Amino acid sequence: MGAAVVGQVTRGTTGTNRLRRVDRWIARHPALRRADDPLVIDLGFGASAVTTLELHARLRRERADVQVRGLEIDADRVARAQEQLAASGVTGVSFGRGGFEIPLPAGRRPVIVRAMNVLRQYDEAAVTDAWRRMAGRLAPGGVLVEGTCDEIGRVMTWAQVSADTVPQTLTLSLRLAGLERPSIAAERLPKALIHHNVPGERVHAFFAALDREWERAAVQSPFGPVVRWRTALGAMAQSGWELRDRARWRLGEVTVPWSAVAPS
Rank of each mutant, 00 (worst) to 15 (best):
residue 87 A to M: 12
residue 117 N to Y: 08
residue 7 G to Y: 09
residue 83 E to L: 11
residue 259 S to E: 13
residue 215 E to H: 06
residue 28 R to N: 04
residue 237 A to V: 10
residue 195 H to V: 12
residue 12 G to S: 04
residue 211 D to L: 02
residue 30 P to Y: 01
residue 18 R to Y: 10
residue 30 P to A: 07
residue 57 A to M: 12
residue 40 V to W: 05
residue 129 D to M: 10
residue 5 V to P: 06
residue 42 D to P: 03
residue 92 G to K: 10
residue 110 P to S: 08
residue 186 A to C: 00
residue 216 R to M: 03
residue 75 A to W: 13
residue 9 V to A: 15
residue 36 D to W: 10
residue 106 A to F: 15
residue 28 R to C: 04
residue 256 V to E: 02
residue 100 F to Q: 06
residue 234 G to L: 03
residue 238 Q to E: 15
residue 47 A to P: 01
residue 230 R to G: 08
residue 155 V to L: 13
residue 14 T to W: 03
residue 107 G to V: 08
residue 116 M to C: 02
residue 149 C to E: 15
residue 1 M to D: 13
residue 100 F to D: 10
residue 20 R to P: 00
residue 205 A to K: 11
residue 96 G to T: 06
residue 256 V to W: 02
residue 187 E to Y: 14
residue 12 G to M: 05
residue 243 L to I: 07
residue 58 R to E: 00
residue 50 V to I: 15
residue 14 T to A: 14
residue 43 L to E: 02
residue 64 A to D: 14
residue 237 A to F: 07
residue 10 T to W: 11
residue 208 A to D: 13
residue 47 A to H: 11
residue 137 R to M: 06
residue 67 Q to Y: 12
residue 96 G to I: 10
residue 198 V to A: 12
residue 119 L to S: 03
residue 150 D to K: 14
residue 48 S to R: 12
residue 80 R to T: 14
residue 154 R to F: 05
residue 179 L to D: 12
residue 160 Q to I: 06
residue 9 V to L: 15
residue 59 L to I: 13
residue 107 G to T: 10
residue 144 L to A: 12
residue 47 A to F: 03
residue 207 F to W: 04
residue 54 E to M: 01
residue 256 V to R: 00
residue 55 L to Q: 05
residue 12 G to H: 09
residue 109 R to C: 08
residue 143 V to L: 10
residue 37 D to P: 00
residue 224 G to Q: 00
residue 84 Q to R: 12
residue 184 I to T: 07
residue 247 A to L: 05
residue 9 V to E: 15
residue 201 E to Q: 14
residue 109 R to K: 08
residue 223 F to H: 11
residue 11 R to W: 13
residue 246 R to Q: 13
residue 236 M to C: 08
residue 117 N to F: 04
residue 178 G to A: 05
residue 238 Q to V: 07
residue 13 T to I: 13
residue 72 E to C: 04
residue 1 M to T: 15
residue 95 F to K: 14
residue 191 K to H: 07
residue 254 V to L: 01
residue 241 W to E: 05
residue 151 E to W: 14
residue 106 A to K: 15
residue 101 E to P: 01
residue 244 R to E: 15
residue 150 D to P: 11
residue 192 A to D: 12
residue 177 A to L: 12
residue 92 G to Y: 08
residue 234 G to R: 03
residue 128 T to V: 15
residue 37 D to R: 00
residue 258 W to I: 05
residue 231 T to F: 12
residue 179 L to C: 09
residue 126 A to V: 04
residue 51 T to P: 07
residue 40 V to H: 05
residue 213 E to F: 09
residue 50 V to W: 10
residue 197 N to E: 10
residue 62 E to L: 08
residue 177 A to T: 11
residue 46 G to A: 13
residue 255 T to C: 06
residue 100 F to H: 07
residue 15 G to V: 09
residue 198 V to M: 06
residue 48 S to H: 09
residue 75 A to C: 07
residue 253 E to A: 02
residue 220 Q to L: 14
residue 96 G to V: 05
residue 28 R to G: 07
residue 156 M to H: 06
residue 263 P to K: 02
residue 134 M to Y: 01
residue 2 G to S: 15
residue 141 G to P: 04
residue 155 V to N: 04
residue 226 V to K: 11
residue 70 G to P: 09
residue 262 A to T: 00
residue 221 S to Q: 14
residue 174 L to R: 09
residue 141 G to L: 03
residue 30 P to K: 02
residue 125 A to Q: 13
residue 39 L to F: 03
residue 142 G to Y: 00
